[in-house]
Design a protein around this nucleic acid. Sequence first.
DNA 1: GTGGTCTAGACCACG
DNA 2: GTGGTCTAGACCACA
Lengths: 129, 129, 129, 129
Amino acid sequence: MFYINSADATPLYAQLTRAIQFAIATGKLRIGEQLPTVRQMAVDLKINANTVAKVYAELERTGIVETRRGVGTFVCARHFEAKQQRQHEHELRDFAERVIAEAGAMGFSLDDLVDQLQSRRKKELKKYV
Amino acid sequence: MFYINSADATPLYAQLTRAIQFAIATGKLRIGEQLPTVRQMAVDLKINANTVAKVYAELERTGIVETRRGVGTFVCARHFEAKQQRQHEHELRDFAERVIAEAGAMGFSLDDLVDQLQSRRKKELKKYV
Amino acid sequence: MFYINSADATPLYAQLTRAIQFAIATGKLRIGEQLPTVRQMAVDLKINANTVAKVYAELERTGIVETRRGVGTFVCARHFEAKQQRQHEHELRDFAERVIAEAGAMGFSLDDLVDQLQSRRKKELKKYV
Amino acid sequence: MFYINSADATPLYAQLTRAIQFAIATGKLRIGEQLPTVRQMAVDLKINANTVAKVYAELERTGIVETRRGVGTFVCARHFEAKQQRQHEHELRDFAERVIAEAGAMGFSLDDLVDQLQSRRKKELKKYV
DNA sequence: GTGGTCTAGACCACG
DNA sequence: GTGGTCTAGACCACA
């Protein structure tokens, strides 16, 4: 379900964090659903259990998942502090700005990126509807 | 000309290497053209000169650039055109995944983000026309 | 400067986190001041460097310290998101409530606790004025 | 009657052990008096019954309580009056340090906290008079 | 059996 | 020399 590339210079824990956030954002992981256990995930990805634990702890710290001791780790209902509409918009604009800059630096045209984002979304929606 | 995101966990040297390779691959940097000096690049990107120097050294080792002592660093040739198309697509997919993951973690819906990006497309196009 | 009790069931990292927060709260550590290096702290407290690193990372995540790679870890200016006065008060009341409950459970009278808090503050102030 | 803070990193069993010992030491629980049943305590504190059972077993091992099969768990005698005064003071200091650290981390000034606590003193006093 | 803590020690990125 | 990442493996708290 998750994919890690140990050849990539991006730290394993960052890749996994991203993959889980992505899975949640696209609905592959639903609210309340249990994540693989730390050890199982470690086995699946062939990485150290501590690395997985670090990721889970980090995600819990940011409120994306909830861990119940002795039970497991679960996706939790996002509690986005109802941002001011204004601030939300401002942050979105900043974020879009950054995405555009990075895409440019990596040589992706905005069109390609938007296409990719949209096709991703459709694919994911299809899978789970 | 180059873009580095120090918030990204991907090592600075990897980001810079990728950015330079991309610039060469897409012709933004032409064969024979001079790269910014190590110090200039360090100042521009607000990173340490040693980091830039290591990137240049690595690129020289792989034959992508050539350093002429006391003169500067120059683009040498392209060694990686073959893998370009597939590699590019793969990188785009990874990048899109990262964007979606980050957007999700920040509470932005993919729709909002795509809207935002598209509303900026025209402006960006204008810049480069 | 910091004190850890490995006999205490409270995790070492929690004790150290607390000790550092305390040092900052009482002015023992000033804004901008450098914390001992990870390795030095580990030697001083006779604990593993990773445990210290975990604490520093955690404190950075919450914005209490700032780490500059290759340089060190520094106390940073607190950027308490100017809370609404109302909310601040509400949170303080909740916090006080909790403190009272815990003090009660541990058998400390409110008088003793207040005395202790005040004497601590005076002592700290004296030291550094 | 007992208070557990599951947000505190201190293990639940350690918190409960301390709370019971304190209750006995201060006479809130008298010699011969029955403790809540394991299950009742678990329900009250919203923790697992095994955790409570282990605490009771440990307390029995040290001779502080006595379990009569099929009947319940009873306070046996005090074995730790001697260390009480010094221990109590030491714990108060630790507790005060923790409170100061947490208050600092949450952005409350010690003065504000002390004010808040003192303003509540009368109410608390009333409760117990 | 679940996650959490800690250690020891290797290697890397950065200044 | 600084902090960061990762591993392997031990032991603990909790259900």
